[in-house]
């Protein structure tokens, strides 16, 4: 019964300054669009020899042997997707719980400094994470965490096989650490913005704070939190140096999370300087093209999901 007031469109005077501003904004957005298209075209041109030579087999073949000029991207696609999946699952769980704690449970004197620290964590250079991963996490994985996981979950193929320390799981954990601040900080902001009214409605029905956070606040914040996770996933997919340092750099597909692996970004970073033949260079560029497309597809899917959730909720 309280209908939104309707506004009639009225012809208005547009100042020259507004026009100028509009022109700048339009030019800016067109420039960005051109940049993306240009990047894509450049990648396609650069990888053209490889695309012509290997065709679709490039994506489905799993042998990567520069000596014999055999190039298949499957192990790297697998490594990239797996490490990112591990990272986003861990980071989403930890990050969302941390965000709930910071927004609704932490006393002010604790919440403020913690939030600040977490934002600082996002600014640590990735090579530092890589060093930590190599000198602390990898040995810990080899001697303690890995054997413990294997003891409990060793009956599944995921946790069987030799534990080297470096590998898929270590790479995923490093990535998770790197993206957890992003998930936490954005989710926290989204949760804080949920109206107090809703929390009070739930509390007044006799729910505990915890039930209120889980059943009312998180569902209300889900679109924003999902957005945070996608942003973080995007970073995980493209992250290079830290993963390169702890993943083992072996282009193989294994069912074990302890096995060494390789990611698209890592191969490019490691091998570009030693690519001696032009087909080798071209193959590396095609890896870049694949990474570019994977990131685009992930973001597009996320956008679609957000729209569909919003569409079903909004009037």
């Amino acid at each position: 019964m309280t209908a939104e007031p309707r506004f009639r469109r009225v012809a208005r005077f547009v100042s020259p300054a507004d026009r100028g501003f509009a022109a700048v904004v339009y030019a800016g957005s067109i420039l960005f669009a051109l940049l993306i298209v240009g990047l894509f075209v450049e990648l396609v041109l650069g990888s053209w020899p490889s695309i012509v030579k290997f065709g679709p087999a490039f994506i489905f073949s799993s042998s990567w042997d520069p000596i014999t000029s055999k190039f298949g991207a499957l192990p790297m696609i697998f490594g990239t997707v797996m490490t990112s999946l591990i990272a986003i699952v861990l980071a989403a769980f930890i990050g969302i719980m941390a965000a709930v704690f910071l927004a609704d449970f932490a006393p002010r004197w604790l919440g403020q400094p913690l939030s600040f620290l977490i934002e600082l964590l996002a600014a640590v250079p990735s090579v530092v994470y890589g060093l930590w991963g190599l000198f602390v996490l990898a040995p810990f994985m080899r001697t303690t965490l890995g054997p413990a996981l294997q003891h409990v979950l060793g009956w599944t193929p995921l946790f069987s096989g030799p534990i080297y320390g470096v590998g898929l799981l270590t790479g995923g954990i490093i990535l998770a650490l790197m993206i957890v601040p992003t998930v936490t900080a954005i989710s926290r902001d989204v949760i804080v913005a949920i109206p107090r009214d809703l929390r009070e409605a739930s509390m007044a029905l006799g729910s505990t704070k915890w039930e209120t956070a889980m059943r009312v606040v998180l569902p209300a914040a889900r679109v924003g939190i999902f957005g945070a996770c996608v942003l973080a996933l995007g970073r995980a997919l493209g992250e290079t140096i830290a993963v390169t340092m702890v993943i083992g750099n072996r282009p193989e597909i294994s069912s074990s999370l302890f096995a060494p692996s390789y990611t698209l970004a890592s191969v490019i970073a490691n091998e570009f300087t030693e690519a001696t033949t032009s087909i080798y260079t071209s193959a590396l560029i095609e890896l870049g093209l694949i990474l570019f497309l994977v990131s685009m597809v992930v973001n597009a899917l996320a956008r679609l999901m957000i729209w569909s959730v919003r569409g079903s909720e909004r009037v």
């Binding site: 109206p195 009214d197 809703l198 009070e200 409605a201 739930s202 509390m203 007044a204 029905l205 006799g206 009312v216 569902p219 209300a220 889900r222 909720e313």
Partner: peptide
């Protein structure tokens, strides 16, 4: 206590999800 004493607020606040 809150289950025995219900409350209605100034602005309608149904759970949106």
């Amino acid at each position: 206590i809150r289950r025995r004493i219900g409350m209605v607020f100034q602005r309608p606040n149904p759970f949106p999800t």
